[in-house]
């Protein structure tokens, strides 16, 4: 999407939101200018997720309104209110509660690749009927903490804070639910055993 197009879309968004006309549309778009991540240089002029303000990771386009978000970001929204953050169009709650498949991700925009060392491993959490791989960004954060000998770390996923306890190999959501899940480190990538990545079903295993 071109910047101008984003600006014009944001313009109509702001109208919908009844924001006073003094709002400077261009400045609120926050088109990415700073490049602070390895992969950003390739995508410096491209899309930004309106929720995390970064290049969308596992991007998904909403069926009705065509707005694009990171899957994890829109899942976070969907857990609270099933409306598009841009235009308030209704969005299917399945995104958060049933998950999606790889095929539903937006074509032409890739998953954020995080540079992996040869010694790096893969991180999984136990979820609905099996193991799920963490998203690439969170996985590499956990691995980093693991390799530097930390006992625990906090990660921020779809609007919730989670504590990853590397001694107990557990993750715990820091809110009223305090739901605990087992986590797992694997030297090689699970293939047929994993359900998918971060709530996105792997299509290879969809028959399982």
């Amino acid at each position: 999407m071109e910047n101008d197009e984003i600006v014009s879309k944001l313009g109509s968004l702001l109208e919908n939101l009844d924001i006073k006309s003094s709002v400077d549309v261009k400045s609120s778009v926050d088109i990415k200018s700073s490049v602070d991540e390895a992969t950003d240089s390739e995508t410096a002029n491209s899309l930004e997720c309106p929720i995390c303000l970064q290049y969308p990771n596992y991007p998904i386009e909403l069926d009705n309104c065509k707005h694009v978000f990171c899957f994890l970001c829109i899942k976070g929204v969907c857990l609270r209110i099933s409306r598009c953050p841009i235009c308030r169009a209704e969005i299917p709650r399945d995104i958060a509660f049933a998950g999606i498949t790889e095929n539903q991700l937006l074509n032409g925009t890739g998953t954020k690749e995080v540079s992996k060392q040869s010694t790096d491993a893969y991180w999984y959490y136990e979820g609905y009927r099996g193991w799920w791989e963490y998203d690439s960004v969170t996985g590499s954060k956990i691995e980093q903490a693991f390799q530097s000998g930390e006992h625990k770390l906090n990660v921020y996923l779809f609007g919730y804070n989670y504590t990853i306890n590397l001694d107990k190999m557990q993750q715990c959501r820091e809110d009223s639910t305090n739901r605990v899940r087992k986590i797992l480190r694997n030297e090689v990538q699970m293939d047929s055993d994993k359900k998918g990545v971060a709530g996105i079903f792997s299509t290879k295993n969809s028959d399982k």
Binding site: L13, L14, L17, D18, I19, K20, S21, S22, V23, D24, S27, S28, D30, P50, I51, L53, C73, G76, V77, R83, P85, I86, R88, G159
Partner: peptide, 24 residues
């Protein structure tokens, strides 16, 4: 916008602009 009309697509910047608008 600070209550039920909040959406995560809004930012600190847009909120402050809205406050400025409210003063006007």
């Amino acid at each position: 916008t600070l209550k039920d009309k909040w959406t995560p697509a809004l930012t600190i910047r847009t909120v402050l602009l809205t406050v400025q608008g409210l003063l006007s």
